[in-house]
Amino acid sequence: MKPAPFAYYAPTTLDEALSLLSEHGYDAKVLAGGQSLVPMMNFRIAQPAVLVDINNIPDLAYINAEEGGVRVGALTRHHQSETSPVMARHAPLIYSTMPKIAYPQVRTRGTFGGSLSHADPSAELPTLTTTLDAKFRLVSQCGERWVSAREFFLGLYTTALEPDEILIEGFVPELPPRSGWSLQEVNRRKHDFALAGVAAVLTLDESGICQDARLVFLSVGDHPMYAERASNLLKGQALTPEAIRAATELATTEEIDPGDDIHATADFRRHLAKTLCQRAIEQAHQRAQGKQ
C-alpha cells in the first residue's frame, strides 16, 4: 500500500498553484487535507502524476461572518468549523453536523474545500451546502466564477470543477428568522459514512405556515439528492403529520436513487431515508418554532 511515483509541488502562492494546474491539467491533483486522496493513492486507485500541495498557501483557512451569511476558506479544517462560534451562529446546521464527520484525526486534517471538491455522495458537506444553498468560488489562471452547490455536484466524485480550477472558498447563506434545520443519518459506527441521511431546512411565516423548505439526501444517489418536488410540496402548508408524511413519501419514492452494497440493500436504504426524512422535517419544524 505505497503510492505509485508522482511529482510533488508545494507552491506558496495561489498563482503558482494555478499555474501548475494549468500546466499539468488532468495529470495533476490538488492535495489539501489528503484524507480521501492519500488513501486512494496508497491503494493505487488514484495515480496522479503530479500532486499540487496547497497547504503552504497562506490565508486560505478562515470562517468569516458577512452580510447574509458566512464565508469559509478552502483550507478550513473540519475541526475549525466544529469549534467556530461564527459557524455556530451563522451556519448551525454545518456546525452541529461537524462531529458526525469521521473521527477527530480526520477532522484535524480534512478541509472544507477538499471535501466539496472530492464530492463523495456519502459525505456530509456536499449535502449540507446544497441544503443551505451555498455557492463556491472557483478560481483558475483565466479568472474566477461562482457556482451554486446545486450546480456544482454532478455525480459520483464529479463536480463542475475544471482540471485547472481550485475551489477557493464558499459562501453559506444564513437562514432567515423562524427557520429550523436538521440532519438525520444512520451510521453503522459513529464515524462511518452514513447508510442513508437527509438534511432539512424549513422557514415558517408568522402564522406557522411553511414558507420555504429544502430536503437533501446523502448516500442514496450518486450526488446530494435535492428532493425539489417534495420540498415544494411543503411550501404554503401547515406542517401537519399528513403533510410531512406526504412530502416524505414523495421524496423517498421518487426523488432518491439508492443503490445496493455490502452494508445495505437499496430497499433498506429507502426505508431508512423515509424514516429519517420524517424525523428531519419534524425536528426542523420544532426548531423553526423555537422549541429546540
Binding site: 452494508h263 445495505a264 433498506f268
Partner: peptide
C-alpha cells in the same frame, strides 16, 4: 447480523 439483515428477519423478508 447487521441492521439490514436484522430488519429483514424482523419483517420475515429475504434480504442480503
Amino acid at each position: 447480523l447487521n441492521p439490514n439483515r436484522l430488519f429483514g428477519i424482523a419483517r420475515k423478508e429475504k434480504t442480503a
